[in-house]
Write a protein that binds this DNA or RNA. Structure first.
Lengths: 352, 352
DNA sequence: GTTAGCACTCATTACACCCGAGTGCTAACT
DNA sequence: AGTTAGCACTCGGGTGTAATGAGTGCTAAC
């Protein structure tokens, strides 16, 4: 049904529209791309493409623009991956410095680099670790009736929690209790801790039951907090440059979505869970968010080993440069995986 | 020179312009505010006010708008503080929940509440603690060649740092070294640690010199990290609603400034250090940032006890509602001080 | 000192108009 | 049968002109 020539014409329309943001007409195609056919022929083909729902007309006397379905076709079947330019590679090398020791800064750097390279808006979620297991726990004295519970998880992340109790053992005592706690909690998930063993421990150190009970509560709280994951955005202003957002109302909608943390998190979470190691693309209305109906999202997961621990996404106008964006995102995610691995290697963990 | 009537007229112009964003003419004033004088008289007075540089004309056949100097006069001499409405108080009560246990979330909530109430953009810096002293340090075992250094500062904030070394003592050994470290570092500022005593310690535990040296290095690094303070913004999109920013180019400038962390930090840092406990206002060009020349900033410090530990600011168009903004900000800072105090009370500290 | 009156300015809006890019359709061409 | 030239038609965007109206400064009278 869709022959080679139609394919070429569709591709020409999409490429041209991505570059210019202007509806593209038959004459333009005939002039710019030497397909060796006349505008009239192209018009016929375009009429067919419109019947198939791949392109559409903003109004009668305008050229055609790709439809959502058209972009989908392009992204799935026609898009060629594009090599990074030397400049881009150089930029990345400088932008993402290896000697940060906080994952947090790494993610901020990454968001910034990605938004600068693509000229779109980027969103990065902080690594989640709430599925992790507990490896070690230690109570650290703070003052007469305060201790800090330091929880080390099996990916070597560290969480603090401050606990206040009337009776606090001395440093030695804390040390002992810490060891016993570690023994009990070892290898339990942060979510479920063995309540029997904990009761036993509380009984044994009945004098410090308040303290110990609070420690367990702190663990649960920690889990909850980790669910409420941190988010970094960058390059929000880039969207203002695009003609499709010259209407203030539209920009406001998009910005509302971008400022709404929960929205972004669900947005980044959407898509095929099975294809978690691939780059995913949501075109226009595919994200099902009214405010973002004129935007597309290109996103990927980043990993520690094989486990996806966070997401990274690029938000641009539906008419975004998918091919470039995919290439850059791909490169960055690869880089990120390597860096995170090496951070875990070098430092034995990352700070909260 | 500036008599009572001129004062009244200036006030009328400013109030009207703040409300409508339209240049205000003599007839409007005569109609809306019953000063008992005719438009012609008002015109004469306005002409004088213009000579004094307090108001200006966008073009010949338009009304007058306040000049930067005019706003300054208003803010310094004429602005009446305004009671919060019942609704606003109610809103604040609900918006800033007391039972967050991370200062980080509290600041985010605050930024959001403030931007929603004022309908402007808000910026909040995370509490800084790099001036703090060290209260306690403890090494926590992570795995065979990794420990976490947990640093408790005198405002009870807690910092982690992961350290990797070839030789690591057992839990007991770490406990002992921790105590000795604490003894040395106690009450030193994070910036300067007594190098003589540290050398002695390293000598004493020569087997673990690598570890101990790294711990000291970690302390220095921690200081550096803390300098790079976290920043929360909220309500950026609010600016889009104002007619003065209907020009996309202008919005882009402003957004660029708002996305640039360093800029915001210097911005919030500007102003009279002696008046740190008062609300400060930078009008239009007073902030000396080209990108923000059409914006005003209302800002304040929040405190622990008497020490300012962070800043909170509202960014709006020069024509912003200063009186409302000041009242709300004032209320929020008061609330914040109380909450932070009580957090330190209840929990004995806050987590990083 | 205040005000009514008046001529003047100038941004904004409306309207009519044209232009050009683009289309669909038909008939002729290969 | 597919391709192309030709043509009438559509429609958004720009341009020129006129009308509108809010506002001013100045002058003369109150």
């Amino acid at each position: 049904m869709i022959n080679d020539r139609k394919f070429k014409i569709l591709e020409a329309i999409i490429n041209d529209y991505i570059a210019t943001a202007e509806p593209v007409g038959s004459r333009t195609i005939a002039r710019k791309y030497n397909f060796g056919i006349s505008p009239a022929t192209i018009r016929n083909e375009m009429s067919d493409l419109e019947d198939m729902g791949l392109i559409e007309q903003p109004h009668t006397s305008a050229g055609r623009i790709p439809s959502q379905k058209g972009y989908r076709m392009y992204v799935d079947n026609m898009m060629r991956s594009r090599e990074l330019t030397r400049d881009e590679i150089e930029f990345l090398k400088n932008a993402i410095s290896l000697n940060v020791n906080r994952l947090e800064y790494l993610m901020q750097q990454t968001a910034k680099a990605l938004s600068m390279l693509t000229n779109y808006t980027t969103v990065v979620t902080e690594p989640e670790s709430f599925k992790m297991k507990i490896k070690h726990i230690q109570l650290v004295p703070v003052d007469n009736n305060t201790v800090a519970a330091v929880i080390v998880t099996d990916d070597n992340a560290i969480k603090n929690h401050i606990i206040k109790a009337k009776d606090i053992p001395n440093a030695e005592g804390l040390f002992i209790i810490s060891n016993e706690l570690s023994e009990i909690l070892k290898d339990s998930s942060l979510v479920d801790v063995d309540s029997e063993a904990t009761n036993k421990l509380i009984e044994k150190h009945s004098k410090y039951q308040e303290l110990i009970a609070k420690v367990f509560k702190a663990i649960v709280t920690t889990v909850r907090q980790e669910r409420d994951v941190q988010l970094y955005t960058s390059g929000v202003r880039n969207l203002l440059g695009f003609p499709e957002f010259s209407d203030v109302e539209k920009v406001k909608n998009v910005f509302q979505a971008i400022e709404e943390k929960d929205m972004l998190i669900t947005l980044l979470g959407k898509g095929d869970e099975n294809a978690a190691d691939k780059i995913q693309i949501l075109i226009g209305g595919e994200n099902n968010m009214e405010q973002l109906k004129d935007c597309s999202i290109v996103k990927a997961n980043y990993r520690v080993g094989r486990n996806s621990i966070g997401r990274i996404g690029v938000i641009g106008p539906t008419r975004m440069n998918y091919s470039q964006t995919v290439s850059i995102l791909d490169e960055i995610v690869k880089k990120l995986d390597v860096i995170i691995d090496s951070m875990l290697e070098d430092n034995g963990g990352y700070n909260e």
